[in-house]
Deep mutational scan, measured.
Amino acid sequence: SKIRITWGDKTWEWDGDDEEVWKRILEWARNLGDEELWRHVKEWVDK
């Protein structure tokens, strides 16, 4: 399956939905430097 994140007018996609993928997404969000996006992603990961 895919994980799709839409933020503003951008959309990103990742293949898979296991823990490793979420770790990569969390790292990606942090590297993007958008605090609010990172917080949202972290909330999803922690669920």
Rank of each mutant, 00 (worst) to 15 (best):
I5D: 00
W14E: 01
E36I: 06
K42P: 01
R30A: 14
I25L: 05
V45W: 14
H40W: 15
L26T: 10
L32S: 14
D46C: 10
G33I: 05
E20Y: 13
T6G: 01
N31P: 04
I25G: 01
D46S: 03
I5E: 00
T6E: 12
K42W: 14
D18T: 11
W12P: 00
G33K: 09
R30G: 10
V41G: 00
K23C: 03
L37I: 10
W28A: 01
E13K: 01
D9Y: 02
E20Q: 14
W12S: 03
W28N: 01
G33M: 07
I3N: 03
W22T: 07
D34F: 07
L32C: 07
S1I: 15
K47Y: 05
D46P: 04
R4C: 11
G33S: 07
T11K: 06
D17V: 06
E36W: 05
W28Y: 02
E19H: 13
R30V: 10
L26P: 00
W14R: 00
E13A: 04
G16I: 10
E27L: 11
E43V: 04
R4K: 14
L26Y: 07
R4A: 11
L26Q: 08
E36N: 09
I25V: 10
D9W: 02
I5F: 15
E35H: 07
E20F: 12
D17P: 09
D9K: 04
K10F: 09
W7S: 02
V45Q: 12
D15Y: 11
L32G: 05
I3E: 00
E20G: 14
V41H: 00
G16W: 12
D15I: 09
K47R: 05
D9S: 08
E13F: 07
G8S: 06
L37V: 07
W44L: 15
I5T: 01
D15P: 06
D18E: 11
H40R: 11
K2G: 10
D34E: 07
E20V: 10
L32Y: 15
E43W: 06
W12K: 06
D46L: 03
K2N: 10
E43T: 03
H40Q: 14
E20A: 13
S1T: 13
R30N: 11
V41R: 00
G33H: 08
D18P: 07
V21Y: 01
D17M: 06
L32P: 01
L32H: 15
R24Q: 14
S1P: 11
R39F: 12
L37N: 01
W22E: 06
I3D: 01
E13W: 07
I5V: 09
G8N: 10
K42Q: 15
A29C: 05
V45S: 14
T11P: 01
E36V: 05
E35P: 10
E35D: 14
K42V: 15
K47C: 02
V21K: 02
N31A: 13
W22P: 05
E19M: 08
I3G: 01
K47L: 15
T6L: 05
G8Q: 11
W14L: 03
G33P: 07
I3R: 01
L26C: 06
R24T: 10
D34P: 05
R30C: 09
E27P: 00
R30H: 12
G8M: 10
G8F: 05
D17I: 05
K10E: 14
E43I: 04
E36Q: 09
